[in-house]
Amino acid sequence: MPARGLTILGYAALAALLVGAELVARWRPDAMASASAVLRGVCRTRAGQLSLLLWWWWLGWHFLLAS
């Protein structure tokens, strides 16, 4: 498989793992934290709160505007 295909497969696998983690968290909440719980954990500090806000906003700026 060419390098480009492997790279795309890598991103797809990571996206699938994120979805899988959330499904496991909903099916077995004692085994895995949900995305919401992880978010709340990151928000325990002001730096975490501002960091989370920054990354969300930057995602929109980076992808919705053409470089």
Binding site: A31, A33, A37, V38, R40, G41, R46, Q49
Partner: peptide, 11 residues
């Protein structure tokens, strides 16, 4: 900060 999630399993 927001309310703690309670007993937190694997993150």
């Amino acid at each position: 900060a927001p309310a703690a999630p309670g007993r937190s399993p694997r993150t």
